[in-house]
């Protein structure tokens, strides 16, 4: 799931300074699940912005809407009508939603309400952790399913660095050393030999360093 978090209110208020009518647009996709951009969060954001406007003595007014997803054209279609009369739309979708609105809805000024942070999992209520970097060439079969690209500070491919102590990362002791865990996991699985293989230098083109990525499934194309 894509994880995001609300931008600071002062930053959002800065974006809309001088405007009058603002639509706060939620998304019931990932951001609703990670409690950053769904119906509930959109309502709170609108209330908070309204209070900010009251404090600043401005006459801004805020509308609130939520779409099922902002990353599919069919759900985005009503926005063209919805956005009429508004100076701007604050999207609380991930960056994908904001981009998609910008791409698909000419005449709509779209502003990001969230910072899109990472691909993560919900450890418990209110806690999310990064698990994948979307590098485009998965090596998880070699590492016991634990990703060294996303979860090692240096993205090492060949074992823990000299800063690994007691299973913790030297960067942040709250973070586990993923290579220590890979070592333990592979040992448990009886695959410790894999740790003696030298992983070759990675091809980063699939990670986006080869340009914006796209995926085509011929049979699904209209």
């Amino acid at each position: 799931m894509i994880i995001a978090e609300r931008k600071p209110l002062s930053e959002i208020l800065g974006m809309i300074q001088g405007m009058h009518r603002i639509l706060v647009l939620g998304c019931r996709g990932c951001v609703a699940v990670c409690s950053s951009g769904g119906d509930k969060e959109v309502a709170v954001l609108a209330s908070a912005l309204r209070l900010g406007a009251v404090k600043a003595g401005s006459d801004m007014s805020f509308g609130v809407q939520t779409l099922v997803r902002q990353c599919d054209p069919e759900y985005l279609a009503p926005l063209a009508e919805m956005a009429k009369g508004y100076d701007a739309v604050i999207s609380t979708a991930c960056g994908v939603g904001v981009n998609f609105i910008a791409d698909r809805c000419p005449g709509v000024r779209v502003l990001p309400g969230l910072n899109t942070t990472f691909y993560g999992a919900n450890l418990s209520s209110g806690e999310w952790r990064e698990m994948c970097a979307g590098c485009g060439s998965c090596v998880l079969h070699l590492t016991g399913g634990l990703c060294p690209v996303a979860r090692c500070a240096k993205g090492l491919s060949n074992g823990p660095c000299g800063g690994s102590v007691g299973g913790r990362c030297e960067i942040n002791p709250e973070t586990a050393c993923v290579w220590h865990r890979i070592h333990d996991k592979l040992t448990d699985l009886g695959e410790a030999d894999r740790l003696m293989d030298i992983m070759p230098i990675k091809d980063w083109r699939t990670a986006g360093h080869g340009g914006p990525r796209k995926r085509i499934r011929e049979e699904l194309l209209p």
Binding site: G159, P160, G162, G166, L195, M196, I198
Partner: peptide, 19 residues
């Protein structure tokens, strides 16, 4: 290369040196 005999997991350190 460098090697750290005092980092963890200790038993893996010689193997990493071998790599």
């Amino acid at each position: 290369a460098a090697a750290n005999p005092f980092a963890d997991p200790f038993e893996y350190r010689p193997k990493r040196l071998a790599k």
